[in-house]
Design a protein around this nucleic acid. Structure first.
Lengths: 225, 225
DNA sequence: AAAATGAACCTTACAGTGTAAGTTGTCAAG
DNA sequence: CTTGACAACTTACACTGTAAGGTTCATTTT
């Protein structure tokens, strides 16, 4: 007979929301690669298979996490100036990465096909349309700005500033000797510089979009390569 | 005694280069997630552990793969106009994603600290300096342009156009009814539109950089948010 | 109150992963 | 022919997601 003390287990405790909350915690604590159903279960005080009652697979769970993050976003006030609306929407997305750094790499790579994500996407496309662009230019500008945003989120959370991942590390002396430009630039690659750098690129894109809208398309854009 | 026929095995066959070649093949065939040391070994006709004689870990192997791709890049001819040099360097990087679509997500996420990658990075930073920017602006513009490039490579190889990854798929009817902007924009999200969209965003950034260099910094860049 | 139902959870098991440790096969130098 | 070194293999371990089936318990029905 088993005389070991068994933690009294209150059934019916688990819920999708609880599991999602715990998942975010485990991911941020253990890293995205360190996340597993068993660790998640441990954090919840249950067995791994119990989670499958609420989510049929890890893929379903991950989709729910993305949906939660995207679903929490709301479109900027339509009464604000366009440039400001665009800026707010972009910063909102960027903030997700800031709040969930370990999850960012997954998040950015994720293909958003769920209804919740499509609804957000639809709203963002509306925002581009409100800028005065036709369907084609709205679509292309959305993607171009999205590229910038995705790359930024990725780098800010998993990039150069997060320390070496390479196996062959390079000493500071070698860096200074062989790669002086990297050495000099490194000062502006740190976390403290993220905002300023991001703003610079974002303003460049916003400026160009306003220029495009104001009919400056006879300018360099169609110029030589 | 074992009388089973054993494939005669020629020892001493393996080399780092062979393993890297096979790794690229396996990754593109099986996908990045489907890659494993055992599958790589099978492709090579050897056992998984034999690979460890040439690469101490998968991380080392991955680093070698990234090094090979980056190491193959060369800086654009310094005699060309600056804008064209920049464009070539950017397109060279982008082509890596095109040639190794399945590897792109890893590639873009990878933190480049190896000597080979640092050398490339150092050269690119030189290119920005050649554009007439000081250390700080070179560093920030490199990052901003890099964000755009990273995001593009990511999306072009693992993004929306590559089909649904979501578990809750949405029917075409629902898409047309509930997300008309997505439906309309979808036409410009396909693979065939990648080049044109990428060029649009790239030209926007190049235009802004030339404007910055030509001392137009009294313009909107420092304007209201 | 007793029985039945079904959701919620657990146990076990399997095929897969990276890789540490130890063993065998092969070839070249002495 | 022996020895040594190295390349490749074998085995084993701790981990992963999850399929299959068993157990427990709250609720509902009789």
């Amino acid at each position: 007979m088993d005389t070991s003390i068994k933690k009294k287990r209150v059934r019916g405790r688990l819920s999708r929301e609880m599991i999602e909350d715990a998942a975010f915690e485990v991911i941020e604590k253990e890293g995205l690669a360190g996340f597993s159903m068993r660790k998640l279960a441990a954090a919840l005080g249950c067995e791994a298979m119990s989670i499958y009652h609420h989510f049929p697979s890890v893929a379903h769970l991950h989709e729910a996490l993305v949906d939660r993050l995207i679903g929490a976003l709301e479109m900027p006030d339509a009464g604000l100036p366009w440039r400001q609306r665009m800026r707010i929407a972009i910063e909102d997305f960027r903030r997700i990465g800031r709040d969930h750094p370990a999850y960012a790499t997954f998040f950015v790579t994720y293909r958003m096909n769920s209804p919740i994500c499509l609804a957000w996407l639809n709203g963002i496309l509306s925002l581009f349309r409100d800028g005065g662009f036709d369907t084609e230019l709205s679509a292309r500008l959305f993607r171009a700005v999205g590229y910038y945003l995705m790359g930024a989120v990725l780098d800010e959370n998993a990039g150069y500033a997060k320390g070496p991942s390479a196996v062959n590390t390079v000493s500071d002396e070698q860096l200074a000797r062989d790669f002086p430009n990297v050495m000099a630039a490194g000062r502006f690659f740190g976390t403290a510089e993220f905002d300023k750098t991001f703003e610079l690129g974002l303003d460049m894109l916003l400026d160009e979009m306003e220029r495009l809208r104001d009919g400056a398309d006879a300018g360099q854009l169609s110029g030589k390569a």
